[in-house]
Design a protein around this nucleic acid. Structure first.
Lengths: 256, 256
DNA sequence: CTTAGCCATATTTGGTTGAC
DNA sequence: GTCAACCAAATATGGCTAAG
């Protein structure tokens, strides 16, 4: 058409991390958009599932917005009847027996924690997946073992597994050396050298901790301990997770 | 509607009208998904815009779920100044049977739900544990392999074996490093320390930050949150490594 | 039954621009 | 400064299947 600088009218939706938006302005705009979106979602949830939903939002400026079906009051009322969810309150419980005496705050905290962990694990899993592909490339039988259910391992297991790996690594290394030695002794240079010509593509990544291949005990007696120490040596463990902090209460299960 | 029998494993997301879902089952599923989505949105809104958000939803079955930042009660209070939610300790000790009966019962049920959640997680871990046992078994097998009598091997065999070892070694090494890294990234709470059956007594239990409630109202600078989110932001590439000494955060404990 | 993915597509919403 | 509109990429999630 005319002389209209047809520049891409948009960069499309940009990905943003869930952290407080710096720009006051952008934040305000975002607030509006998302508030609307939230209410819409709330509404849909209410209609689609015949659920009772209430949502109250205070803009950073202090203005209040709310959505409620049938009404905010109704929901709140139902929710708060005797609310014993005061951190200080006891909210003893008997129903569920032993552990029923936790107060909501605690449950809350626990849940948030759990969720955070799940989130973290999820991320980890993905990275693992990636690495796995690489290993598979190695094409050897061991890869299978290495791949195994690592993806499903929890932190604990991972740690233990790591310890195991270190051991194996040492053993393999040693053995490899031996084999090479043997090979050389028997003197069939031909293949011996060729073998070495096939350097595993991932050898490069062996550096991490010490600056080279980590050398945990050639002995398997205390590999675990070593690791433990290494771990502890690491700086503080930054807790990952999505939307940390806010207190998710989930009085109930949260499928995620 | 033209039947498209087995087009693809997925029909992709179908467009649906916003009206009560007929299928009880589908409705339940939808409820779960959307409830999660709603809370996530709420959470994002809170974080992104530094707003205070509360959402309460009652499933058609009557179960209550809620999300609140900083907390549902806080929002409620603010929304309804006259709210009488400071009963002090309605359900204290006595628990069921008191005026907070209904509420408590509800709470208990809810807790049960949560507990189920946790159990699920636990189960998952167990499965992992199991898997690990398997790994270990494989490991033993490998050990045997390592002990194979090289003298009985033919040249070819020997060479192949050696080559394999080298590769395995590399793979293991890399994997070990990776695992360690992962563990470090996530290895905070849980029982990262319990990982070794015979852990050195000097293991300093990491103080986990868990889903602590971070103060929001104010302004920005909340070290804890910053870091957490930063980490999250770090998608995949940036090798967390040991070097970066993000400061930490660990809000020690909770003011409970 | 409840939970966990998968996949393709419906929605949502950053970033911008322009009118109030 | 608020809000609406636009565009395109980021997400959320119906519909299903598989696993407990």
């Amino acid at each position: 058409m005319a002389t209209a600088p047809r520049r891409r009218a948009s960069m499309g939706r940009q990905k943003i991390e869930i952290r407080k938006i710096e720009s006051e302005e952008a934040r305000q705009v975002c607030f509006s958009k998302r508030r609307a979106g939230l209410f819409k979602k709330a509404s849909e949830l209410a209609v689609l599932c015949g659920a009772e939903v209430a949502a109250v939002v205070f803009s950073p400026a202090g203005k209040a917005f709310s959505f409620g079906h049938p009404s905010v009051e109704a929901i709140f009322d139902r929710f708060v009847p005797s609310a014993a969810q005061h951190p200080g309150a006891v909210a003893a419980g008997a129903g569920l027996g032993a552990s029923g005496d936790r107060n909501l705050a605690e449950l809350n905290r626990q849940y948030g924690e759990l969720r955070t962990q799940l989130e973290a694990e999820k991320a980890r899993k993905e990275r693992a997946e990636e690495a796995m592909a690489k290993e598979r490339a190695a094409g050897n039988q061991m890869a299978a073992w290495l791949d195994a259910d690592l993806r499903d391992m929890g932190e604990e297991e991972l740690m233990a597994f790591a310890a195991a790996l270190v051991e194996v690594q040492a053993a393999v290394s040693e053995r490899a050396n031996q084999v090479l030695q043997e090979a050389l002794n028997v003197g069939r240079s031909r293949s011996a050298s060729r073998m070495l010509q096939a350097p595993p593509p991932h050898q490069q990544q062996q550096q991490l901790a010490g600056g080279g291949t980590f050398e945990f005990g050639g002995t398997s007696t205390n590999a675990g301990m070593e690791i433990q120490q290494k771990l502890l040596a690491v700086p503080p463990p930054p807790p990952p997770g999505f939307a940390p902090g806010m207190d998710i209460v989930q009085h109930g299960g949260f499928p995620y």
